[in-house]
Design a protein around this nucleic acid. Structure first.
Lengths: 197, 197
DNA sequence: ATAATATACTAACGAATGTTAGCGATGTTT
DNA sequence: AAACATCGCTAACATTCGTTAGTATATTAT
């Protein structure tokens, strides 16, 4: 009877959720079975239920831990005393680094939230909608102050956010530029596409 | 015994595939069941098999019909006698319009291709990889001719393609700007992010 | 050492899945 | 009208799914 190995002060639940993130990213939430997850963790499927309530609970944990980090960040950025373009750049760099260093979680949260069930589903969608509105509001400010060219702010937001989710492809590619280079390239293209010249 | 209704010269198979595209987009390939699809088509699940070989075959049809359209387009654009920025703009506009007018198919092809099985899977991945290389090559040309700023071309490609997939959110949003406005906004931001000033 | 708790196991469940077989009804061609 | 192909139906199949119950073992606290 081999116990789930815990390292770095992680609870067994956290180990399971972390392995699940990898699995959900690779196969998708629906296609990844609890038996798959059990094997990845090194245990029988039924044993997982000593640590988690359900498969969906794992998805909750992943989606909301990611969402909360972004909300916390935009709280911080909004409060800063700087111009709109700076704020946007900070948000973008945060998104990029989240995608670089918490790839599995962020990716799963982005692509698999549809499989949440109410009330978590509506909750998540609400948070997402509000986040995007706040992001758009910063862009609007930049437009009004003529730092940013006159574009539709919600459209700009969806371009930015989806563009960053492209880092998925970078992770899988064989000939990678470094993470730093990637970050600078993305900022150059995305911010460059917004600003007035 | 109600037959599958065919309109506009569509075969029954094409009706099934079209309905499947909607369903796969809404629920994901794995979560959408053949019984769901049957209901959407107005028939029993077993009856579908008079027209299609398997659930996976439907996914093949969707993925490759989309992929073929993009390959065909880049063939056309590469052959044109114009500069790199123009070529990129044409490709982007094509992507945007595909996403606007063949939303279901393009979205499914983009997100669900992982569930293809070999040899179709490797085939699809190859086509995708080659397409992106050709796109990157056009960007490289623009960089060498100093129309485009000095960036990593593969990174630029993944930003462009993923940004466009954000049109998904536009489709679902309630207060939409028009399709034409969306197209112009996207082109402005994306091309604006590339060009040298 | 003993008791208590945490964790893993085996076995099994009901439900849902993709798919096949066989039959009858419908539509088309001769 | 007869022959034939097309199409949809019911019934059923083998798997796989998430999850639960009950039990055994390992760890921790007393």
């Amino acid at each position: 009877m081999a116990r789930i190995k815990t390292e770095n002060n992680l609870t067994r639940k956290e180990v399971i959720v972390a392995k699940a993130a990898t699995l959900f990213r690779e196969k998708g939430f629906k296609a990844a079975s609890m038996r798959d997850l059990a094997e990845a963790v090194g245990v029988e499927a039924a044993s997982l239920y000593n640590h988690i309530k359900s498969k969906t609970e794992i998805l909750h944990e992943l989606c909301f831990s990611v969402a909360n980090r972004f909300v916390h960040k935009i709280d911080e950025v909004e409060a800063e005393n700087t111009n709109a373009v700076n704020k946007i750049e900070k948000l973008l760099r945060f998104h990029i680094n989240e995608m670089l260093h918490h790839y599995e979680e962020v990716y799963v949260s982005d692509r698999e939230w549809k499989h949440l069930s109410d009330p978590y589903l509506s909750n998540f969608q609400n948070q997402r909608r509000i986040y995007r509105k706040r992001f758009a509001a910063i862009i609007e400010t930049g437009i009004n102050e003529h730092q940013i060219k006159s574009i539709d702010a919600p459209t700009a937001v969806l371009i930015m956010l989806h563009a960053i989710s492209g880092i998925e492809s970078w992770h899988r590619s064989t000939q990678k530029i470094t993470a730093e280079e990637l970050e600078e390239n993305m900022i150059s293209i995305l911010v460059g596409g917004l600003v007035n010249r």
